[in-house]
Design a binder for these strands. Structure first.
Length: 422
DNA sequence: TCTGGGGTCCTAGGACCC
DNA sequence: TCTGGGGTCCTAGGACCC
């Protein structure tokens, strides 16, 4: 098993677009310019922490002249596609695990030997073709490949084959337990309280104790650490079980009109996603919350509707969602975030077999064609070219993105073409 | 003043059925 | 008054991931 991931992926993408940024300290912000979600190596070396709010980091950023960018997901998604296309060339099977990482299968040479040389060649090719630095970790299981990947970044110039070393135990002993894939904050605390401080100690702790705390997930994790594969490579992504669109507002919302606009905007985006996934939803939930950070009166609420028939028609979903808005608003509870969650997803074709559709079959088909046309227009001429009036014309609550990088968002052609083939 | 977004998996417990 | 046992399905919530 191999794990390949992009180093400081978002920051690296920004530097691909603007080579002058290479070697400079650079951070990328979350949506709404809220938190730091990526740092270049230089920014990390300055001691800028991951995940902290921009306003807290500001003094440090200014002192060191750090370059700050809003996140540009159109760019990162595009670079991700190119990266995955290149990787697929190099491996026998690929699982795209996230925007910046992939698991892969690669057979060892006939003598069962080291894959490090192969890893180095892969790494060099990606750097040459895409301008993106990646790290390559190799091991008998997913968890060990992840671990090897961490070690690769730390000690091995970006490539490490944990399956080729004579004794992996010292390496496992060097890995803090909280950095093991699958150990989050809660489990890390629990482990440390029991004196289990490293990956090695986790592997060797009593299974029954671990099972009691972490269930079968914990047991699987332990097996994977011991080199017994429990997590298979998933080459075809499973169908989504739910789809969510949510955003923080740039300023708190206290009134119904902007809340309805926001909900309408998220619903129409969620409906678009559904159609792209060739799915329809049976259950729609709208949720809201106030800011969890100011004061004592945290407010959260949600309301759901079951659709009479599963749908991915924006108009149908809007009609279901908008009446929920007024149920969620409370006096003196300014909202900071809202979202739409679609569940009970089923594949597109199911409706065909439904005898009691609310619309005659031909009419239903016309709706499908209309939606497909709108999607095509928006793909071709840019998101929001065709919109629902309910989404509002110039909403004041849309997210802040004050430091968005260049043309890539407004003009996809402006992304440098660094295709492997080109 | 200012704190992201989108997922998955598992489990416990309740509803319901025979 | 006394009131079984076993199964399925669903949901909420908690943990994790990037």
């Amino acid at each position: 098993m191999v794990l390949i991931d992009g180093n400081n992926f978002y920051a690296s993408c920004e530097a691909v677009l603007e080579p002058g940024l290479r070697g400079l300290p650079l951070v990328v912000l979350s949506n709404n310019d809220g938190c730091i979600v990526a740092r270049s190596a230089e920014a990390r070396a300055l001691g800028i922490p991951m995940g902290i709010p921009l306003f807290q980091a500001r003094p440090l950023l200014e002192r060191h002249g750090v370059v700050v960018r809003s996140s540009n997901y159109a760019l990162y998604a595009d670079m991700s596609r190119r990266l995955m296309t290149t990787l697929a060339w190099w491996v026998e099977a690929l699982e795209i695990y996230s925007i910046d990482e992939a698991f892969a299968l690669m057979a060892r040479p006939a003598d069962g030997g080291d894959l490090s040389a192969w890893g180095r060649a892969l790494r060099a090719a990606v750097l040459r073709q895409l301008g993106l630095p990646v790290a390559v970790g190799i091991g008998p299981t997913k968890v060990l490949a992840k671990l090897a990947n961490r070690l690769a970044k730390r000690h091995q110039h970006g490539v490490f084959d944990l399956g080729a070393v004579a004794d992996p135990d010292p390496w496992l002993a060097s890995m803090p337990v909280d950095e093991v894939w699958g150990i989050g904050r809660q489990l890390a605390r629990w482990c440390r309280l029991r004196g289990v401080a490293t990956a090695l100690a986790l592997r060797d702790m009593p299974t029954a104790t671990l099972r009691q705390k972490a269930g079968v997930v914990g047991v699987r994790l332990q097996q994977e650490l011991a080199g017994i594969a429990c997590l298979p490579l998933k080459t075809a992504p499973p169908a989504k079980r739910e789809t969510c669109v949510s955003r923080s507002f740039s300023e708190p919302i206290c009134e119904l009109a902007p809340l309805r606009e926001a909900i309408a905007t998220y619903v129409s985006r969620a409906a678009e996603k559904l159609r792209q996934q060739r799915q329809r939803a049976r259950l729609l939930t709208v949720f809201v919350r106030s800011s969890p950070f100011n004061g004592t009166s945290f407010y959260r609420n949600a309301a759901s509707v079951e659709l009479p028939l599963p749908s991915n028609d924006t108009a149908v979903l809007l009609a279901a969602a908008l009446p929920l808005a007024s149920q969620l608003l409370r006096p003196h509870k300014p909202l900071q975030k809202a979202g739409v969650l679609l569940q009970g997803l089923e594949p597109y074709e199911i409706l065909q077999h439904h005898l009691f559709a609310p619309l005659p079959w031909e009419q239903q088909q016309r709706r499908d064609v209309l939606m497909a046309t709108i999607d095509r227009l928006n793909r071709r001429y840019g998101a929001g070219t065709v919109r629902w009036a309910a989404c509002g014309l110039r909403p004041s609550w849309t997210m802040r993105r004050q430091r968005l990088s260049g043309a890539a968002t407004t003009c996809l052609e402006a992304i440098p073409n660094v295709d492997a083939a080109g």
